[in-house]
Nucleic acid binder design. Structure first.
Lengths: 232, 232
DNA sequence: TAGATTGTTAATCGATTAACAATC
DNA sequence: TAGATTGTTAATCGATTAACAATC
């Protein structure tokens, strides 16, 4: 809780009065780097580091030191001139910014290959997420438990979502069912959806959507590979 | 093979002589949108559309029509003024650009929860990827087959990679093993790595790396959700 | 003190958008 | 022809980088 010199970061009064340095909405790219900083900071702590610097973080992640400082400055003053950043303190700050300092209950719809893998994925818990229920339409799966998580009939989504005050949901159904699944999630009061189905879905403007298409990631790789070969 | 009017796109001579309109390297963001265009075009074809337009593609995907045209113009002239783009033709062109018009053999290292799901993921095959071998260090898994793919001892990676002329590999091992896995892949001649381990890994400059961190995707969602609530 | 490193400003760079002649 | 839509240029917008006074 105490900084290296026994005080709080820089001019604390100022830091607290203004919520963040720049105005306007935070660029999406900044937020995605924030998650990378967090992950790297947690790694550094496991390796025994007490403090780090913008140049160290930048070097590992492939960003410039200026960019690291600028990104963090959107949200406040977290560093100590001449010293750097205190890892534990910055982890705490970034978690607060991302909203993962508290635990989020999450539900998942679709218990196929991918859904099962996500149910068992340890990384979610480690970052503050807990899958509290799974849903499917296949009668043979309903009632079973996987990784300690019960599989419910999709029809019970509204009921269970309300019961646990669920805000976040993961779509792991086939592409053909993704849009209707999203609509059911929205109807059940969810406001954030992580979509693994390889299809574009649309949600109301008050709902956040993040899409992850695994095949697209491989496509990005092939493009980069063939163009690298072409250069040399 | 023939365009709507029986001819090839616009001034074909020009289109063929210059490889792409703008100079310098292609922005990464453009390439990732290219994959989204491809996915949407394939969807449109399944729905029976023959042609589409930059404004239709843009509307569905949330981009401006100008951006769609600009992105495509990096690589050549694919459209017909007054008509739009012929879906089948544009699909073909984008696949060629991304390098997925031919099939890529892929290997995967790590047959845990996530690795097994990826082995069974149909989306890879559909986009031109084929997982030809899996690797693990767990003796109980070695020799087994999952989804028709044999699991080999990781020690045999160089041998099998050479045999199948493998360029692409997927890392699905725990974070602690990711860096050494990457190094073994590079030593085995792979030049593109898709990393699902939640850790930053480093590879030589002649190797391409794409990282997917599932927990980070959820973090992006929580940020967006809490800041949306804050606005209103 | 000298050395290290921050937060922040101004300058640079790149990406998106608007507009429009050319085309079908 | 009139309407639709492209490819491309110029203008706008936003994001990254370089530089540096302030700080420890």
């Amino acid at each position: 809780m105490t900084a290296p010199n026994g005080r709080t970061p820089m001019s604390q009064q100022k830091s607290k009065s203004r919520h963040h340095g720049s105005c306007g909405p935070i660029p999406k790219a900044v937020v995605s780097r924030l998650s990378l900083y967090l992950r790297e900071l947690q790694h550094l702590v496991r390796e025994g580091h007490e403090t780090t610097s913008s140049s160290q973080l930048g070097k590992v992640l492939g960003f410039s030191d200026a960019q690291v400082r600028k990104d963090l400055a959107y949200f406040g003053q977290f560093g100590y001139p001449g010293i750097g950043y205190r890892c534990a303190e910055l982890i705490d700050a970034i978690k607060r910014i991302l909203g993962t300092h508290r635990q989020w209950p999450v539900i998942i719809v679709g218990v196929g290959n991918l859904g099962r893998a996500l149910l068992g994925y340890k990384g979610f818990q480690q970052q503050g997420f807990r899958i509290v229920a799974a849903f499917d339409v296949d009668a043979r799966k309903i009632g079973r438990r996987i990784e300690g998580v019960e599989i419910f009939d999709l029809a019970r989504l509204p009921e269970i979502a309300e019961q646990h005050n669920i805000k976040l949901g993961i779509i792991a159904v086939p592409a053909s069912a993704a849009q209707t699944t999203a609509e059911k999630m929205v109807a059940a009061g969810l406001v954030g959806i992580l979509n693994f189905a390889p299809v574009t879905i649309s949600v109301p403007p008050n709902v956040s959507l993040v899409g992850v298409d695994l095949a697209i990631q491989l496509e990005q790789l092939t493009f980069s590979v063939i163009n690298r070969l072409a250069e040399t």
